Simulated assay, not measured.
Amino acid sequence: MKIRLQLFEFEDLPWFPRVIRAGMMDYLRFMISLLGTYQPIVPLLREALAKANAAELLELCAGAGGGTEGILRRLRETGLPTARITLTDLYPQPAAWQLLAQRNPGLTYEVAPVDATAVSTTLAGFRTVFSAFHHFPPPLAEAILADAVQQRAGIGVFEGAGKHWLEILLAWTVLPIAQLLFTPFMRPFRFSRLFFTYFVPLIPLFTIWDGTVSILRMYPPAQLLSLARRADPHNTFDWQAGKVRHWWGPEVTYLIGVPRLQRT
């Protein structure tokens, strides 16, 4: 599927109820962690960190932090024991992040809002964006990359899908059933999550819509590279984009940019 449709997701709308958005983000975090969605990109990320001489990751648009602790744990187990991650978002979720930080030494978070298109110079680290880059139309997506280029901060963009019609079918069938089965086991516990899943099922319904639109809004690798080249007109970064496949089938789409060594 090479087309990209700039549709809307409910979670992006400013009037959308926070309680429903939080429930959707909790589900996304739980499933990404349970399935190890981003484990296939750990070798690519570790290689990029080595090239950038970095061990600190700055996660932008972190949402509820889905998959973050698994990535941090795997990085530390495979040759980068000093790896650290700081979670940030324009709409911070400290309640969800605090739970992750308590379980994972080396994981911290920023309570103040962070704009991914204009990151403060006080927030250092190799930047990552998981499951969120598709939310941004091309001008803003390019601005995220351009800000990293301007500050000479390496960046990795990762989407937990390969942009296939089969993934849309899964979003309509298997994943809603999984949501109904696993919601009672999600932490931190929220009565509102149970209420809006089982009694008034707004969380599952909006999750189906947003999950479908997320796939349709995703940038395929060729478009990611095109955005990167526009964001880096002087060719100061090394860029690579593509897909990697999980051992059980699903793909992860990625774009990675590392600053080239400056000549003295």
Rank of each mutant, 00 (worst) to 15 (best):
V119F: 11
V119M: 14
T121I: 15
L123H: 15
L123Y: 14
A124T: 15
A124C: 15
A124E: 15
G125Q: 13
F126A: 07
F126R: 14
T128W: 13
T128R: 11
T128N: 11
V129D: 08
V129H: 04
F130I: 10
S131R: 08
F133I: 06
F133G: 06
F133C: 04
F133W: 09
P138I: 13
P138A: 14
P139D: 13
P139R: 14
L145V: 15
L145E: 05
A146C: 09
D147C: 10
D147Q: 13
Q150F: 07
Q150M: 11
Q150R: 15
A153H: 14
I155S: 03
V157W: 07
F158Q: 07
G160F: 01
A161G: 06
G162S: 06
K163I: 04
H164R: 12
L166W: 05
E167L: 05
E167W: 06
I168K: 04
L169N: 00
L170R: 03
A171Y: 03
A171V: 03
W172T: 01
T173Q: 01
V174C: 02
L175C: 02
L175R: 06
P176S: 08
I177C: 06
A178D: 05
L180M: 12
L181F: 12
T183Y: 08
T183K: 06
P184F: 11
M186S: 09
R187V: 05
F191D: 12
S192R: 13
S192D: 10
R193H: 15
L194N: 05
F195Y: 13
F196T: 10
T197V: 01
T197Q: 10
F199V: 14
L202W: 08
L202Q: 04
L202P: 07
I203Q: 08
P204T: 09
P204C: 07
P204Q: 05
T207Y: 15
T207S: 15
T207W: 15
W209F: 11
G211Q: 04
T212M: 06
S214Q: 02
L216Q: 11
L216K: 11
L216I: 02
R217A: 07
R217G: 08
M218H: 00
Y219G: 04
A222K: 06
A222V: 06
A222M: 02
A222E: 11
L224H: 00
L224D: 03
L224E: 03
L225D: 01
L225V: 09
S226F: 00
L227F: 01
A228R: 01
R229E: 09
R229D: 02
A231S: 03
D232F: 01
P233R: 01
F237V: 08
F237C: 08
D238K: 01
D238C: 00
A241Y: 00
G242A: 00
K243A: 00
K243F: 00
V244K: 00
V244I: 13
R245V: 07
R245A: 11
